Computed example of a mutant assay.
Amino acid sequence: MAPVVWHVPVTVTGSTTALRLFRLRDGRRCAVGFATTEALTALLGPEQACTELAEPALRALAAPLGVDALVLDPRLVAPPVARPAREGAASTPAGPTGPTAAAVRTELQHR
């Protein structure tokens, strides 16, 4: 019986291809594989590069990185977060609240 091939997301920088890792809800890193390129594209978008690996090869690549969790055909677990509109606010998106980045940077430099 031939091994099952998974479509695995990767990051490509120049001539280097690296396994793309994700996080589980508890914060542990995991590797993922998809049964089809369509499933991968549906979850990660059409620009996501991928390679084909059998499960043992995927586990062998992830193990030296301390990754022992493998998620096959993951699903999005949370809907996109939309910022709620404030009452009486203008139609432009609200900026961050609290001190500005420059103020925080200055405060950190003085400590």
Rank of each mutant, 00 (worst) to 15 (best):
A31Q: 01
L58E: 06
R20H: 07
R20A: 05
R25L: 12
V5S: 15
V104L: 15
P46K: 07
F22R: 10
A54E: 11
R23V: 00
A69C: 03
A42T: 05
L70Q: 04
A101F: 07
A57T: 13
V81T: 06
P80G: 02
R83K: 01
D68Y: 03
T51C: 11
G27Q: 13
V104S: 05
V8F: 01
E38G: 15
V32N: 10
D26K: 15
L58V: 08
T36M: 05
A103S: 14
T16A: 15
T37P: 11
V8M: 10
R105T: 07
A69W: 12
F22N: 02
H110P: 00
V104H: 11
T100N: 06
E55T: 09
L65C: 03
D68N: 13
L58C: 07
A102W: 01
Q109T: 14
L24P: 00
A39E: 11
R75M: 14
V5H: 10
L21D: 03
L53K: 01
T11L: 15
R29T: 10
V104C: 09
A89T: 15
R86G: 00
R75N: 06
V104T: 11
A42I: 02
L108S: 10
R23L: 04
V32W: 12
E55S: 02
T41Q: 07
L72S: 09
A39F: 00
P99F: 03
E87S: 03
L19D: 03
R20C: 02
L58Y: 03
L108N: 09
A35E: 04
L65W: 08
C30I: 07
R23Y: 03
M1P: 15
M1S: 13
R86I: 01
A39W: 01
A49Q: 07
A102T: 13
H7D: 03
L72V: 09
P84H: 08
T13G: 13
T13W: 01
L65T: 08
V67T: 06
A103I: 05
R25T: 01
G33C: 10
L19Q: 10
P46F: 04
V32I: 08
V10Q: 05
L24W: 09
L61Y: 12
R28V: 01
Q48H: 11
V10T: 11
E87P: 09
P74G: 14
D73G: 06
V5F: 02
A69R: 06
